[in-house]
Design a protein around this nucleic acid. Structure first.
Lengths: 156, 156
DNA sequence: ACGGAATGAATGATGCGTCATGTAGGTTGA
DNA sequence: TCAACCTACATGACGCATCATTCATTCCGT
């Protein structure tokens, strides 16, 4: 190979703009959630999944699959959320290795209280800035990139 | 107000796809950098800025402006990078409160060694999946969102 | 039936990010 | 000129993310 293939100008600009958007949007959303509800963005993700699940109960490995988190991250995070009373752990009769994570009443109250302001922030920061074509383009771009990652992960 | 305005279906799908792309791309890039060069993505950003600066020297507040980091994050991070020998701190004669951060020889070597594989990973994960129109759309979307944030930060 | 491999999950160490706060030095205006 | 204020930067505490490791249980081939 005769040298590194760098990004061309369009790619360079797109990448820097993306990085800035990504960092700022994440920071804003995190701060808004923390300030208004005392939840982190990570907490929010966990609570959403549990709230959507029947009985607010999920096996950790299912949660892991949905969130695409590292197993140990999830385990640590659930531990902290449990200490704060947002979730609880139960034993799993079907598989003695396993466990259940269940949403507590406080956890459900927290997500229900947090959701409106959070959604509103997402819309204000992101979707109010984009026309419908751009929204579809964003989905298309993100889907393509994610599909590319998955193709790499498990080669044909 | 009569209730929360949720996201419509297009927005919902775009948002979930974006979140997944964001998380996965960041994770992959971080792991690649760490594995191949022992640098974090944050390290990489700092080193790029310093390498582009004359004499590899910058005032911390300038670095902060470029990276859009919190001041204390930068301070902590520079401390860790200094311990690892990637950067050094010098006093600033013009302003006794201030300081300079300077790229060490090891720091310059690290960024030069890391860049090719990193850029290659960015291209492989992102730009190889997108056609030129999508690249331009990504830049446009990101720019719009960032501009929206800035407009909020300092209202007219 | 049993030994090895795979699975579900927890833990300790360590680096990262934020908040609140501290401190020294500069700037401004009455 | 000097008090009030602002700016540049550092620090301690604490929650978060990752890696490596560990452990119990289940699965599976022989």
């Amino acid at each position: 190979m005769t040298g590194t293939r760098w990004l061309d100008d369009d790619q360079q600009r797109a990448w820097r703009a993306y990085l800035r958007m990504q960092a700022e949007v994440a920071a804003r959303l995190g701060r808004q959630l923390q300030a208004d509800s005392g939840l982190s963005f990570a907490d929010y993700g966990v609570l959403v999944q549990l709230a959507e699940a029947p009985d607010g109960r999920l096996r950790p490995f299912a949660l892991q699959r949905d969130l695409q988190w590292e197993q140990s991250r999830l385990s640590h995070h659930l531990g902290r959320m449990q200490r704060r009373g947002l979730v609880d752990r139960e034993e799993c009769p079907q598989d003695a290795r396993g466990a259940f994570v269940v949403l507590t009443a406080a956890g459900r109250a927290a997500i229900e209280a947090a959701a409106p302001a959070h959604v509103d922030t997402v819309r204000r920061l992101v979707f109010d800035q984009l026309d419908p074509d751009e929204v579809r383009a964003l989905e298309r771009i993100a889907t393509r990139v994610v599909d590319g990652l998955n193709a790499e992960r498990r080669p044909a």
